[in-house]
Structures are given as C-alpha cells and as structure tokens.
C-alpha cells in the first residue's frame, strides 16, 4: 500500500489545496511542456526551484515526492546501463577490459532523470493537493470547448471519477482474494511456471467476476437514481477561479517563455 503514494490525495490545508483544479491542471501542463525544452542546467535549476516553491506552499512532505520516485529507480538504472553501452561520445571516463563509459552517457541519463523527476514532482503535487472528484470536474470543464467536436466531456469525467471512487475498493478486494487463495496454498513467489500461471489466474478471474458484479450493481444504482448518459444535469460543485489561480497560470506561462528563450540561447 505504501508504494501507492503516487497519485494519492493528501488532505492538508494550504493555498495550493484551495486552488481551482482547472488552474492547477493548466499550470501542470505548462510546466511539463517547459520541461521538454532543452534549457540546460540553468533552466532545469529554475524549474526545479519553482516546483519546489509550489511544493513548499502546498505543505506537502517532500519525502512523499521522493517516495513516489522509488518505483522509477529500476527503470533509470536500466536506462543508465543501456546508455553506457550505446552512447560513446564525450570524455572517456572508465575503461575496464574494453568496457568503456563516456561522460555523455552519464549526462544523458542525468538529463532524463532530472526531467522525469521534475515531471513526477509536478504531477504528484497536482494529485496530492486536488481531490479526485475536483480533478475530474476540472477535466470536464477544460474539455467542454471540445464538446462540439464530439468529445463527450461529461461522460469522460464521470468515467474517471467512478474509476477513482472504486480504486480503493478494488485494492481491498484484490488483497482479500490473494489471502483467500493463499489459504488454498497459492504461493506467488515459489513454484513452477505452470503453478505461477495458475496462481495468477486464481487471482485475476475472481477479480474480474467481482468487478463485473460491481459494475452491474453500480449501473443499476445510477440508473435507478435517474442517471442517463447524455441527459442534461445540473451540477452540485461549481468551480471558481480566484487571484491565486490567475497568478499560478501567469507564473507558469512566464516560466515556459523563459525556457523557450534559454533553449534558443543554448542552441
């Protein structure tokens, strides 16, 4: 459960928590685009600092964000390994029995690491400070202009919010089924290949059966309470932009422009 810090809402009382989800989504998108400009160490330093300030304002424990990086570590190590094999530019740093490591390989990996880290830091801040339902409301509102092109913004938002609502239930269900099958001698760690396949099946099949049952129950409950996709509805939660929201958007725009300028200078 502890590895699930990624994407989890953490209820705190901060200026960032109180912001309109729309401005947070827009801000996040702008920052992510900024990260993609090759703006060099100075650029990444500036972005890092800005995101760090946002994290401070949100009162989140910085540890949480580092924790959410942990699942990426293996991937990054693998990337480093591939890069050292493939990239043979820059200074020769190490040569052991013909196995060579060049400085550029290290730099490239570091670049990717920093980009990934900044992106995860930004998205984690968004999801940790925004209630899942607010997030979907924000997405719904932002997608509204695309409705005339046939984008079902409301249905997408409903889909996401229901998925989010049932994730904890499904996690609990998975743990329950795992325990039930462990009581029947299932051992996911040991056993032959065939036994492992059976072990996984014994988990997945019941999970599907139960998820389908849930889906049917839920569809009935929604329909019985007058829901019908495509039918107009009113909305309980109304989003409202405040001064802090506009500040965030303007700041992130300034950030992006400076990254464009910096990347030009580099080139």
């Amino acid at each position: 459960m502890n590895s699930l810090t990624l994407g989890k809402y953490i209820p705190l009382d901060s200026i960032i928590h109180k912001m309109d989800p729309r401005s947070k989504i827009i801000g996040m998108l702008i920052i992510i685009v900024s990260i993609f400009f090759p703006s060099g160490w100075i650029g990444y330093g500036i972005i890092g600092l800005s995101v760090f300030v946002v994290v401070l304002l949100s009162k989140l424990n910085i540890k949480i964000i580092f924790n959410s990086m942990k699942p990426m570590m293996m991937m990054l190590l693998f990337l480093l390994f591939i890069n050292t094999l493939v990239i043979k530019d820059g200074d020769l740093l190490l040569d052991v029995f013909g196995f060579t490591i060049y400085s550029e390989a290290i730099f490239q990996t570091l670049y990717i690491t920093i980009r990934l880290f900044l992106m995860i830091m930004t998205t984690t801040t968004l999801t940790a400070t925004t209630k899942p339902l607010d997030l979907t409301l924000g997405i719904e509102d932002l997608l509204k202009p695309f409705k005339r092109f046939g984008v079902p913004s409301h249905e997408i938002a409903m889909l996401i919010s229901i998925a989010l609502r049932f994730i904890p239930d499904l996690i609990e269900e998975t743990q329950r089924i795992m325990k039930a099958q462990a009581s029947r001698g299932v051992d996911l760690k040991e056993g032959t290949f065939k036994e492992k396949i059976m072990a996984i099946l014994s988990l997945i099949v019941p999970l599907f059966v139960s998820a389908l049952q849930r889906a049917e129950d839920l569809a009935n409950a929604m329909e019985a309470r007058g829901y019908s996709p495509g039918k107009p509805r009113t909305r309980y939660k109304v989003l409202k932009m405040k001064g802090s929201d506009y500040t965030l958007i303007v700041c992130s725009l300034i950030l992006m422009v400076s990254m464009i300028v910096l990347s030009r200078m580099y080139a």
Partner: peptide, 13 residues
C-alpha cells in the same frame, strides 16, 4: 488450518 473468508464464492475461478 483451513480459512474460509467472508463471501468465499468470490474465490472460485
């Protein structure tokens, strides 16, 4: 020690 969970019908596969 055989343990039967609540609603065990959900473990059939």
């Amino acid at each position: 020690v055989g343990l039967v969970f609540q609603f065990p019908e959900y473990q059939l596969f």
